[in-house]
Simulated scan of single mutants.
Amino acid sequence: MLSRNLRHFRVFLAVADLKSPTLAADRCHVTQPAVTQALGKLEREAGGALFDRTRQGFFLTPRGEVFETRIRRAIDRLDAALAEIAPRLTLTASAAQLQAMIAVSEAQTFSLAARTLGIAQPTVHRAVTRLEKDAARPLFDRVSFGLAATRACRALVQAARLAFSEVEQAEAELAAFDGREVGRIVVGALPLSRSVVLPEALARFRAARPRQPVTILDGPYTEMLSGLRRGDIDVILGALRDPLPAEDVEQEPLFRDRLTILARPGHPLLSAPTISLESMARQPWTVPRHGTPSRDQFDALFTSHGLPHPESVLECGSILLMRELLSRGDLLGCISERQAAAEIDKGLLARLEIPFEWPARAIGLSYRTGWIPTTAQRLLLDMIRAAAVELTPL
């Protein structure tokens, strides 16, 4: 595991740029033995030589090239944010100080941050105080409920999170270089993806990478979007947003889907000759939660016809829970057509024929702008794309 020594990373990048430990020592204001020591430590952690030492200079090995790509992205991102606060911080800030700052920004107190990091509270306090001293400005405002990160601090926290994420990516790439399945893959799964595309893609991925750690998260889109932007989640699979939810997020459409209205077999409306929107507005419903594209379309259906929204509504995005709710009464359900396909095919639920057509919505991948997936992450993404094509024909 890489030690996250920022000074060692900068020394490594200087040697990669200048091809000389002597010149790198001058640039980094350290001794040449310190450069040699830093490179030796990094190469032990990286699992092999990062440079070919020749009379003409130091040249990156293939392993070194993998390492250099990730570490340069991490340091470039971090140094830009540090310099924005105070150029001196690019020389003095340590990974431990930045990790303390991140923990305090999340916990909003030194004591809770210390508990999160598993270290003593005075250690966290000293780390943040040192950062503030070198920055010559406060990074936190002292408020009634604790500590609130300043705007500059929030920008640095974001940059530090993503820089540390790049270091984790470097570790995964180095492991893949040696044929080991190491490094996290975290997928945020919205409801449709959990029942249609993702299971097939994960089954294929597990067959190809039996020991690769994979974590699937579910929850509200806003929470997963925050995790994506912080670097805690690698990719989100599900309904895309229009407009883009944030300028640092990209969306990749995979297929299109429509909503459908469901009822239990034998529901009175299934035998009705016609179904009006007015009668539907009076029905009890189970529908996706507010803020989702599905719910927006459901509400827009009644609004566009000048009708009041149904008054009896249960919010539910799970087809399994929706099935159980519908089977116990005369509720109607509104959910993704493909998500409900298996329940309809098995006769567990029935599709209600209505005199209008839902607009199609895009389903796909969301990831950070500029994100470069590792070899394993790229493999899973390709399998998700392939499963989407095979399982959701247009």
Rank of each mutant, 00 (worst) to 15 (best):
A300L: 12
A300Y: 13
L301R: 04
L301G: 03
L301Q: 07
F302T: 02
T303I: 15
S304W: 13
S304Y: 14
H305S: 15
P308E: 12
P308N: 09
H309W: 08
P310M: 04
P310W: 01
E311W: 11
S312D: 09
S312Q: 13
V313N: 01
L314H: 07
L314K: 10
E315Y: 10
G317E: 15
S318N: 07
S318G: 09
L320Q: 10
L321K: 08
M322T: 12
M322W: 05
R323S: 11
L325G: 03
L325C: 01
L326T: 04
L326Y: 00
G329T: 00
D330F: 03
D330I: 06
L331I: 00
L331D: 02
L332F: 04
L332K: 03
L332M: 01
G333C: 04
I335P: 05
I335Y: 07
S336V: 07
S336R: 04
E337N: 14
R338Y: 13
R338V: 08
Q339Y: 08
Q339A: 15
Q339S: 15
Q339C: 15
A340E: 05
A340Q: 07
A340D: 09
A341F: 15
A341P: 14
E343V: 09
D345E: 15
K346R: 15
G347L: 05
G347F: 08
L348R: 14
L348Y: 11
L349N: 07
R351N: 03
R351L: 05
L352A: 08
L352Q: 04
L352V: 14
E353R: 15
I354F: 06
F356C: 08
E357H: 12
E357D: 14
E357W: 11
A360N: 10
I363N: 03
I363Y: 02
G364Q: 02
G364V: 01
S366M: 15
Y367N: 00
T369H: 14
W371D: 12
P373E: 01
T374K: 00
T374S: 00
T374A: 00
A376I: 03
Q377R: 08
R378L: 15
R378T: 14
L379A: 13
L379Y: 06
L380P: 00
L381I: 11
D382Y: 03
M383C: 02
M383P: 00
A386Q: 14
A386S: 10
A386Y: 06
A387I: 00
